[in-house]
Nucleic acid binder design. Structure first.
Lengths: 134, 134
DNA sequence: TCATCACTTCACTACTTGTTCAAGTGTTCA
DNA sequence: TGAACACTTGAACAAGTAGTGAAGTGATGA
């Protein structure tokens, strides 16, 4: 993925709507990076399913793999990605390693998105609906 | 991306912790797909920045491109992705096409994630903090 | 201490995605 | 009517990412 071609022909901004507002970079660049990373980790159906599963409680890799009909290695890799973005945490329990959602915020994100997705079968609207609405 | 290698050696599930709970697929597969699509669209720094910018109000493509020091085409493509996941909507205003966040839910998602990311410089915690914080 | 179990990591391939230039579309204004 | 503006779309390529088998790691139990 390359970058750069900047401003190939941006002229309107200085004329028509000269200054609507500063529209500055007041967003923390670092936070942006982490937020994007988090979203990227959640942006994959198998991984999201894994999280939805873990939202029901702790589970070991074998259990998760069996539940999804996938290989251990595959599931382990998915968990690695999720773990690198701090969406899940793990602890050893004898021979097993149990995974769980890292915190309530992750659960909120997943549930909100799923709720939102369920509400809107085919299109988003000018909704001013509040969260938590089922 | 291939698929399949299923159950290369999952035996523990049937022995040690035989049945912790059903842990069934009660998650709507279709909602999962849409939610993942939404997250995937948000999982890119430039696109997320675009949304953060739009959270401040409507803006035309040229304006957004100028603000980020990027080319029109580049920004237009990013907006296309965002639009395909219904995170932004647009309307024509004379020569310009003004983009805006599609709904409040998207703004919530972005702000929550950014807030969460800002709160946790280097690691996630057992936070039970509620949304809307800061 | 050695075999087994439950994973994790590595290396590799196939596939997906983002950026970019060139060309195309739709509006406005002279 | 046509030139200029503000985008959008298409195609191509580079770079990133997921899945997989094989090999490695760390507990447990005989």
């Amino acid at each position: 993925m390359k970058k750069k071609d900047a401003l190939e022909s941006a002229e309107c901004a200085t004329r028509d709507h000269a200054s609507r507002s500063p529209r500055s970079p007041q967003v923390n660049e670092d936070a942006l990076e982490r937020a994007a990373g988090l979203f990227r980790a959640l942006g994959d159906v198998p991984r999201l399913r894994l999280l939805a599963l873990l939202a029901q409680g702790e589970a070991c890799v074998t259990e998760l793999a069996a539940d999804q009909g996938e290989g251990l290695s595959t599931v382990s890799q998915r968990l690695r990605v999720l773990r690198s973005e701090k969406t899940v945490s793990r602890r050893r329990d004898g021979k097993h390693i149990l995974y769980r959602l890292a915190d309530q915020h992750v659960a909120d994100l997943v549930f909100n998105a799923l709720a939102h997705a369920s509400e809107q079968p085919h299109r988003a609207a000018q909704s001013s609906r509040k969260r938590g609405t089922s």
